[in-house]
Design a protein around this nucleic acid. Structure first.
Lengths: 339, 339
DNA sequence: CTGTTAGCGCATTCAG
DNA sequence: CTGAATGCGCTAACAG
């Protein structure tokens, strides 16, 4: 590997001068600079960013910790993050947690050891001690989709209460009264918030809240599948289901297929996220749209601003984006009730 | 930040001893080791992997360059890569190319500067000069899905010719004769190979190949959409379409919806990949299944083996996985012909 | 078993 | 405008 020293020798200058040329620093004659750059190219010099990072304490790497990069919801956010970081001269190190707190803790540790300049974390929220430590250590990080208030760090999320309210209200206006909600573990804030929105809507329309209609399972396709199997086999099954995510809603569709329950005739279904395929699935899905790519862009910019001003006194902010109800054909009025 | 030196001082030993303790090296008394480890924990010592990489020339990072991480096909492969690398103590730096050769070249450059231990590259194949150089420089890398024979490097892909043959033959056996193929640019080897499989099947059944039925567009949903619009407006439109990927097939479905063409009644459709939602979309998709997660696992193991034995004389191998035709309901016999 | 030392490639003082 | 010197944190000889 050719180093800055090789370039210096060939050019008959010192390493300091080469460093200046390579980094576009001032205090160097334009001609010397040109000559050095030419020689560097001739020698096929490749800057050693490890050595550079060692000196500057900047790796130009951002750690990204998400539940699952293959979940279309996160996949699209990651795409937004990747493009934005790349544009600003950063790369991303990607880690999945599978909603497993052990893996989350391990990922944070590894990223600390790798000395990333900052992290974007979609926290499981089962434990947060490691994040408290992270904050104390002064490593910039931002929370994705799930806020942890007591942590007081930057966060980008959507208005889950509002989104869930819209979804539930839509079902209520279609005449539904037995509306189930299939969701995830309660330690996850987005789960709690969507439950809150769901309950608020029921309350607003004087519909009693039945706890047996709220199912906490895993935030996966098979979670949605299994929960809806249980639900639909109830003696008095719900006429509508509001699923935490489109992925879980697809699990509901799978269960309905097996039980020969027709959507929307026998069951109305609302998802959340509006993933790309939501409009192409068997029953085009009524859902709550989140601007996923934009979330990636916004959160990246937020983080990089922090990275560049590590001791800014600017208080942490939580950017809350309004989601939007998208009505397709998986929901239908019940008993001839008005839409 | 506390360093190895701080730990050494606190423990009353030299930095070398601390290094030995931390890295599980021999030549150290068990007791000293224990004491050092305890002190390191007390001091909240975090190893500086930049400094370590600087010395060992090992970053424990693998670069991953794909067309688009949000494409479910790649997303699942990436998940396989992430889990496998993590298990073996490596992290991944993720870069998207969007099938843009400029971005691919830039990504390779950045990953070289970051001194990754190896790369997994899904090449655009528009140019390959930068990959030739990469090989000459002795940086281990493996090709994902698309082989470049003259490069002579390791590769993991599926048998595109076989898969495309199966897909086309399936349509032929259903009685179709006007079978179109919607695909991507010819510089991409998987595109060429699937065309070859498609042609081979037609040949085997003595069906003339019509070039106007092979459409080269971009490998995206909208690419599939636009190409099928053209195709279906033809005076003598095809009765079946074999799409390069499920994503493109979904584009076809979108076009059919607009044109009120029914699948499979008016048009049979076969995709490729068997992405997770393929069985949930409007018309459950007949497709060619690739073991995407496994591809990620296999290619990672292949790469890491190379990384660990950089001057192994083992010749490069191309692992070709057999894909599998999955028949669902987007394909149907024509004119009462036998299935 | 442990300590001393050198040096990895670079940016950054400080002299000149 | 340029060069010499320093040190970042760590591992890997080597010496004891």
């Amino acid at each position: 590997m050719v180093t800055i020293k090789d370039v210096a020798e060939k050019a008959g200058v010192s390493v300091a001068t080469v460093s200046r040329a390579l980094n576009g620093k001032p205090d160097i004659a334009l001609e010397t600079k040109k000559r050095i750059l030419t020689i560097a190219k001739e020698l096929n010099y490749i800057p050693n960013n490890i050595a550079r990072a060692f000196v500057t304490k900047e790796t130009k790497c951002i750690g990204v910790i998400v539940a699952d990069n293959s979940n279309p919801f996160y996949a699209e956010i990651i795409r937004g993050i990747e493009e934005t970081t790349m544009k600003q001269g950063y790369s991303i190190i990607l880690c999945n947690t599978n909603e497993d707190i052990k893996r989350e803790i391990k990922a944070v540790q590894i990223l600390k050891e790798k000395r990333v300049d900052g992290m974007i974390i979609n926290p499981t929220q089962k434990k947060i001690e490691h994040l408290k430590i992270l904050k104390k250590e002064g490593i910039p990080f931002v929370l994705l989709n799930r806020n942890i208030e007591e942590l007081e760090v930057d966060c980008v999320k959507n208005d889950n209460i509002y989104g869930a309210y819209q979804a539930t209200e839509h079902l209520i206006k279609l005449g539904h009264r037995r509306i189930a909600h299939i969701t995830g573990p309660l330690y996850t804030s987005s789960v709690r918030e969507r439950i809150e929105g769901y309950k608020k809507a029921l309350d607003a329309y004087n519909i009693p809240i039945k706890d047996e209609l709220i199912l906490n399972t895993s935030l996966t396709l098979s979670g949605g599948y299994e929960a809806s199997l249980k639900l639909l086999k109830l003696p008095d099954p719900p006429t509508a289901i509001f699923a935490y995510s489109d992925i879980m809603a697809i699990g509901v569709i799978k269960a309905c297929k097996e039980l020969r329950i027709k959507i929307p005739e026998d069951l109305s279904l609302v998802g959340y996220d509006d993933i790309e395929v939501a409009s192409f699935i068997e029953v085009p899905l009524t859902t709550v749209r989140q601007a996923r790519y934009d979330i990636g862009v916004i959160i990246t910019n937020l983080l990089i601003r922090r990275v560049k001003r590590p001791n800014s006194k600017k208080p942490p902010q939580c950017i809350v984006l309004k989601p939007e109800l998208i009505v397709r054909s998986s929901t239908k009025a019940i008993n001839g009730a008005k839409g």
